[in-house]
Nucleic acid binder design. Structure first.
Lengths: 142, 142
DNA sequence: GTATTATATTTGACTGGTCAATGGATAGTG
DNA sequence: CACTATCCATTGACCAGTCAAATATAATAC
């Protein structure tokens, strides 16, 4: 019992340890932070999107989103404009520049992920993804 | 191919998203941050330990360790003293206070983790842990 | 139509991580 | 013995996330 618990406890620490390692390496490898890459990558699939729905999609606090987007805007990769029909919301979209740059980033990103999962079967990746989703819902009520 | 890649890419974002969610919830639930808990929990199993070996054990940058330990010291849970035989290294240990408090923290922690993994079989936990370890070694060279 | 309530974004204060540079102590080498 | 290496801990500057408070706009209820 106590052994099983300590095993489970380790999971959490392993999780944190792993992400701590991944983030800086990802950034060094690809030239962009994982969060910004995710934002761009979300935008890549849409025309224009509410900042708030974008925020929900990437699971990061709104405050951080605001800052990331402002930075991406000043670096010329995204455009922001207010929704004329509702002046509270902001529409975000990729610029041409951003649309080109993300292709490069995507390459680097794939290289990195491929290395990280190089000995994983397709089933393992699925299982891992599934387990993470379950964890997410299991703690969502907290 | 491109589909499989995008699946793999998602893993990374899922990872980051999940830890982002876990950390604040863990802290709210248990009353202590995951990193500090891990430090205390490492110390619980030893008498006295080098700060640097402690640091390697928890996979956090040394700078952060210094700050955590200082804070834990002023809150009376850990003691630090220099190694008399080598004045570079610092010995860290739990105080009595710390040894008592961690028992409480451990309870909260177990509740949290149990909830997070409540629908996981023992095999799944093992598999998950195993996969994370592999990811860790796969990117360790970067 | 005004008052209240709700929503979207922003800002500020705080925490926790990284890296790079520093200081002090030891080890190794000529 | 001096000189250089290295090692350990610390510090400062920076980035990314959280929460809570502020702002501005929209929607709803009398």
């Amino acid at each position: 019992m106590s052994c099983s618990f300590s095993k489970q406890e380790q999971i959490l620490q392993q999780f944190k340890g792993l992400t701590n390692q991944i983030s800086p390496k990802f950034e060094r490898c690809t030239g962009i932070s994982a969060s910004r890459y995710e934002l761009l990558s979300q935008l890549y699939n849409t025309e224009e999107i509410n900042q708030s729905t974008l925020q929900k999609a990437v699971n990061i606090d709104g405050a951080a989103i605001t800052r990331h987007l402002k930075q991406l805007e000043t670096s010329g990769m995204v455009a922001r404009r207010r929704n004329p029909n509702d002046n509270r919301v902001i529409f975000v979209s990729l610029t041409e520049e951003g649309r080109q740059r993300i292709v490069e980033y995507r390459k680097e990103n794939m290289g990195f992920v491929k290395q990280m999962l190089h000995d994983f079967t397709h089933e393992e990746v699925d299982a891992l993804s599934d387990m993470m989703e379950r964890m997410q819902t299991n703690i969502s009520e907290y």
